[in-house]
Simulated assay, not measured.
Amino acid sequence: MKEKEEDSPRLRLESYIAMRVKSKRTEQGLKIIDVARIAGLSQGMVSKIENAQVSTSLDTLSRLCDAIGLPISQLFTDYDRPEGTAQLTKAGEGMEVVRRGTEKGHTYQLLSYHRGKKKSYEPFLITMDDASEVFPTFSHPGQEFIYLLQGKIRYRHGNHLYDMGPGDALSFDAEIPHGPEVLLEVPIQLLSVIHYDDQ
Protein backbone atom coordinates (compact mmCIF):
# COMPACT_ATOMS: atom_id res chain seq x y z
CA MET A 1 0.00 0.00 0.00
CA LYS A 2 1.43 3.37 -1.03
CA GLU A 3 2.16 5.70 1.86
CA LYS A 4 0.09 8.88 1.84
CA GLU A 5 2.23 11.86 0.94
CA GLU A 6 1.13 13.85 3.99
CA ASP A 7 2.12 10.93 6.26
CA SER A 8 5.65 10.57 4.89
CA PRO A 9 8.49 10.96 7.43
CA ARG A 10 9.99 13.84 5.41
CA LEU A 11 6.81 15.90 5.53
CA ARG A 12 6.17 15.06 9.18
CA LEU A 13 9.68 16.31 10.00
CA GLU A 14 9.23 19.52 8.02
CA SER A 15 5.90 20.21 9.73
CA TYR A 16 7.47 19.59 13.15
CA ILE A 17 10.38 21.98 12.40
CA ALA A 18 7.92 24.58 11.11
CA MET A 19 5.84 24.36 14.29
CA ARG A 20 8.83 24.59 16.65
CA VAL A 21 10.48 27.48 14.78
CA LYS A 22 7.32 29.56 14.49
CA SER A 23 6.38 28.91 18.12
CA LYS A 24 9.81 30.00 19.37
CA ARG A 25 9.89 33.07 17.13
CA THR A 26 6.50 34.33 18.33
CA GLU A 27 7.42 33.52 21.92
CA GLN A 28 10.47 35.80 21.51
CA GLY A 29 8.31 38.54 20.00
CA LEU A 30 10.27 38.52 16.75
CA LYS A 31 8.94 39.18 13.24
CA ILE A 32 10.00 37.17 10.23
CA ILE A 33 11.92 40.17 8.90
CA ASP A 34 13.88 40.38 12.17
CA VAL A 35 14.78 36.69 12.13
CA ALA A 36 15.77 36.83 8.46
CA ARG A 37 18.10 39.78 9.12
CA ILE A 38 19.74 38.19 12.20
CA ALA A 39 20.17 34.80 10.51
CA GLY A 40 21.31 36.23 7.18
CA LEU A 41 18.47 34.55 5.33
CA SER A 42 15.77 35.84 3.01
CA GLN A 43 12.31 36.53 4.40
CA GLY A 44 10.93 34.15 1.81
CA MET A 45 13.15 31.31 3.06
CA VAL A 46 12.15 31.85 6.71
CA SER A 47 8.48 31.99 5.71
CA LYS A 48 8.76 28.77 3.70
CA ILE A 49 10.45 26.97 6.61
CA GLU A 50 7.70 28.12 8.98
CA ASN A 51 5.05 26.86 6.57
CA ALA A 52 6.76 23.50 5.93
CA GLN A 53 7.15 24.34 2.25
CA VAL A 54 10.84 23.60 1.92
CA SER A 55 13.52 21.18 3.09
CA THR A 56 16.40 23.07 4.64
CA SER A 57 20.08 22.34 5.13
CA LEU A 58 21.52 21.80 8.59
CA ASP A 59 23.55 25.00 8.21
CA THR A 60 20.44 27.07 7.42
CA LEU A 61 18.55 25.44 10.28
CA SER A 62 21.42 26.16 12.67
CA ARG A 63 21.50 29.85 11.71
CA LEU A 64 17.74 30.08 12.06
CA CYS A 65 17.81 28.45 15.49
CA ASP A 66 20.58 30.79 16.66
CA ALA A 67 18.51 33.78 15.55
CA ILE A 68 15.45 32.77 17.59
CA GLY A 69 17.37 31.55 20.64
CA LEU A 70 16.55 27.86 20.21
CA PRO A 71 19.57 25.55 20.67
CA ILE A 72 19.53 23.13 17.77
CA SER A 73 20.14 20.31 20.27
CA GLN A 74 16.69 21.08 21.72
CA LEU A 75 14.93 21.44 18.37
CA PHE A 76 14.16 17.73 18.05
CA THR A 77 13.50 17.01 21.74
CA ASP A 78 9.83 16.16 21.23
CA TYR A 79 10.04 14.74 17.72
CA ASP A 80 8.62 11.21 17.47
CA ARG A 81 7.39 11.37 21.07
CA PRO A 82 4.44 8.93 21.46
CA GLU A 83 1.03 10.57 21.13
CA GLY A 84 -0.23 9.33 24.50
CA THR A 85 -3.77 8.23 25.30
CA ALA A 86 -4.37 9.49 28.82
CA GLN A 87 -7.98 9.62 29.98
CA LEU A 88 -9.13 12.72 31.87
CA THR A 89 -12.20 12.31 34.06
CA LYS A 90 -13.45 15.72 35.21
CA ALA A 91 -14.90 16.21 38.69
CA GLY A 92 -18.36 14.68 38.94
CA GLU A 93 -18.09 12.88 35.60
CA GLY A 94 -17.09 9.44 36.85
CA MET A 95 -19.32 6.61 35.66
CA GLU A 96 -21.70 5.60 38.46
CA VAL A 97 -21.63 1.84 38.94
CA VAL A 98 -23.47 -0.64 41.12
CA ARG A 99 -21.44 -2.67 43.60
CA ARG A 100 -22.24 -4.66 46.73
CA GLY A 101 -22.35 -1.55 48.91
CA THR A 102 -24.75 0.37 46.65
CA GLU A 103 -27.87 -0.93 48.41
CA LYS A 104 -26.34 0.10 51.74
CA GLY A 105 -26.01 3.74 50.76
CA HIS A 106 -22.58 3.78 49.10
CA THR A 107 -22.23 5.70 45.83
CA TYR A 108 -19.46 4.45 43.53
CA GLN A 109 -18.00 6.48 40.69
CA LEU A 110 -15.57 4.63 38.45
CA LEU A 111 -12.85 7.16 37.58
CA SER A 112 -11.09 5.30 34.76
CA TYR A 113 -12.59 3.05 32.09
CA HIS A 114 -9.52 2.30 29.95
CA ARG A 115 -7.02 0.16 31.79
CA GLY A 116 -4.97 -1.47 29.04
CA LYS A 117 -5.35 -4.91 27.48
CA LYS A 118 -6.47 -6.51 30.74
CA LYS A 119 -8.08 -5.15 33.86
CA SER A 120 -5.20 -4.39 36.24
CA TYR A 121 -6.79 -1.78 38.52
CA GLU A 122 -10.06 -0.01 39.30
CA PRO A 123 -10.17 3.48 40.85
CA PHE A 124 -13.40 4.46 42.61
CA LEU A 125 -14.64 7.60 44.31
CA ILE A 126 -16.93 6.33 47.11
CA THR A 127 -19.43 8.52 48.95
CA MET A 128 -21.28 7.55 52.16
CA ASP A 129 -23.74 9.82 53.95
CA ASP A 130 -25.88 7.72 56.31
CA ALA A 131 -24.35 7.42 59.77
CA SER A 132 -27.07 5.05 61.01
CA GLU A 133 -26.64 2.40 58.30
CA VAL A 134 -25.00 -0.95 59.10
CA PHE A 135 -22.45 -1.82 56.44
CA PRO A 136 -21.32 -5.28 55.31
CA THR A 137 -17.72 -6.35 54.95
CA PHE A 138 -16.25 -7.02 51.53
CA SER A 139 -13.81 -9.59 50.22
CA HIS A 140 -12.43 -9.71 46.68
CA PRO A 141 -9.18 -10.43 44.83
CA GLY A 142 -6.28 -7.97 44.70
CA GLN A 143 -4.69 -5.28 46.81
CA GLU A 144 -6.69 -2.21 47.80
CA PHE A 145 -5.58 1.32 48.65
CA ILE A 146 -7.99 3.80 50.21
CA TYR A 147 -7.42 7.50 50.80
CA LEU A 148 -9.91 9.46 52.89
CA LEU A 149 -10.82 12.81 51.35
CA GLN A 150 -13.65 13.94 53.64
CA GLY A 151 -15.30 12.92 56.92
CA LYS A 152 -14.15 10.44 59.56
CA ILE A 153 -14.50 6.67 59.54
CA ARG A 154 -13.60 3.60 61.56
CA TYR A 155 -12.49 1.05 59.00
CA ARG A 156 -12.18 -2.69 59.58
CA HIS A 157 -9.63 -5.00 58.00
CA GLY A 158 -9.78 -8.51 59.40
CA ASN A 159 -9.67 -8.21 63.19
CA HIS A 160 -8.17 -4.69 63.18
CA LEU A 161 -9.98 -1.34 63.32
CA TYR A 162 -8.47 1.89 61.99
CA ASP A 163 -9.77 5.38 62.75
CA MET A 164 -9.25 7.54 59.69
CA GLY A 165 -9.61 11.24 58.97
CA PRO A 166 -9.02 13.38 55.86
CA GLY A 167 -5.59 12.69 54.36
CA ASP A 168 -5.23 9.24 55.98
CA ALA A 169 -4.46 6.27 53.75
CA LEU A 170 -4.79 2.52 54.25
CA SER A 171 -3.56 -0.31 52.02
CA PHE A 172 -4.35 -3.98 52.49
CA ASP A 173 -4.96 -7.44 51.07
CA ALA A 174 -8.50 -7.20 49.70
CA GLU A 175 -9.19 -10.94 50.10
CA ILE A 176 -9.33 -10.42 53.88
CA PRO A 177 -12.81 -9.15 54.90
CA HIS A 178 -12.82 -5.36 55.12
CA GLY A 179 -15.15 -2.37 55.11
CA PRO A 180 -16.46 0.60 57.10
CA GLU A 181 -17.28 -0.30 60.71
CA VAL A 182 -18.55 3.09 61.93
CA LEU A 183 -19.17 6.32 60.02
CA LEU A 184 -17.87 8.77 62.62
CA GLU A 185 -18.49 11.96 60.66
CA VAL A 186 -20.52 12.20 57.47
CA PRO A 187 -20.54 12.86 54.60
CA ILE A 188 -17.60 10.60 53.88
CA GLN A 189 -15.74 10.58 50.60
CA LEU A 190 -12.83 8.28 49.89
CA LEU A 191 -10.72 7.23 46.94
CA SER A 192 -10.40 3.46 46.56
CA VAL A 193 -7.94 1.90 44.11
CA ILE A 194 -8.09 -1.87 43.68
CA HIS A 195 -5.04 -3.42 42.05
CA TYR A 196 -5.50 -6.90 40.64
CA ASP A 197 -2.67 -9.40 40.60
CA ASP A 198 -1.57 -10.84 37.27
CA GLN A 199 -4.46 -12.84 35.87
Score class of each variant (00 low, 15 high):
residue 1 M to W: 06
residue 3 E to F: 04
residue 3 E to M: 15
residue 7 D to A: 15
residue 13 L to W: 06
residue 13 L to N: 07
residue 19 M to S: 14
residue 22 K to T: 08
residue 26 T to F: 03
residue 30 L to E: 03
residue 32 I to C: 03
residue 33 I to K: 12
residue 35 V to H: 02
residue 35 V to C: 03
residue 36 A to L: 10
residue 37 R to N: 12
residue 39 A to N: 08
residue 41 L to G: 04
residue 43 Q to E: 14
residue 44 G to D: 11
residue 49 I to H: 06
residue 52 A to V: 13
residue 52 A to W: 11
residue 53 Q to T: 07
residue 55 S to R: 15
residue 63 R to M: 11
residue 64 L to S: 09
residue 68 I to D: 07
residue 71 P to N: 10
residue 71 P to G: 09
residue 73 S to A: 15
residue 73 S to L: 06
residue 76 F to A: 12
residue 78 D to Y: 02
residue 80 D to H: 09
residue 83 E to G: 03
residue 84 G to H: 01
residue 84 G to Y: 01
residue 85 T to N: 08
residue 92 G to V: 06
residue 94 G to M: 06
residue 95 M to F: 01
residue 99 R to P: 00
residue 101 G to R: 08
residue 104 K to C: 04
residue 106 H to E: 14
residue 107 T to G: 01
residue 107 T to A: 10
residue 109 Q to L: 15
residue 109 Q to P: 00
residue 109 Q to C: 04
residue 112 S to Y: 02
residue 116 G to H: 05
residue 117 K to R: 14
residue 120 S to E: 13
residue 121 Y to T: 07
residue 122 E to L: 04
residue 125 L to P: 02
residue 126 I to D: 03
residue 134 V to Q: 08
residue 138 F to E: 05
residue 142 G to D: 02
residue 142 G to Q: 03
residue 144 E to A: 10
residue 146 I to M: 11
residue 147 Y to L: 10
residue 149 L to D: 00
residue 154 R to H: 00
residue 155 Y to R: 04
residue 157 H to T: 10
residue 157 H to K: 04
residue 162 Y to T: 10
residue 174 A to H: 05
residue 175 E to H: 09
residue 176 I to S: 04
residue 176 I to E: 11
residue 180 P to C: 11
residue 184 L to Q: 13
residue 185 E to L: 10
residue 190 L to S: 03
residue 194 I to T: 15
residue 194 I to H: 02
residue 195 H to S: 14
residue 199 Q to A: 13
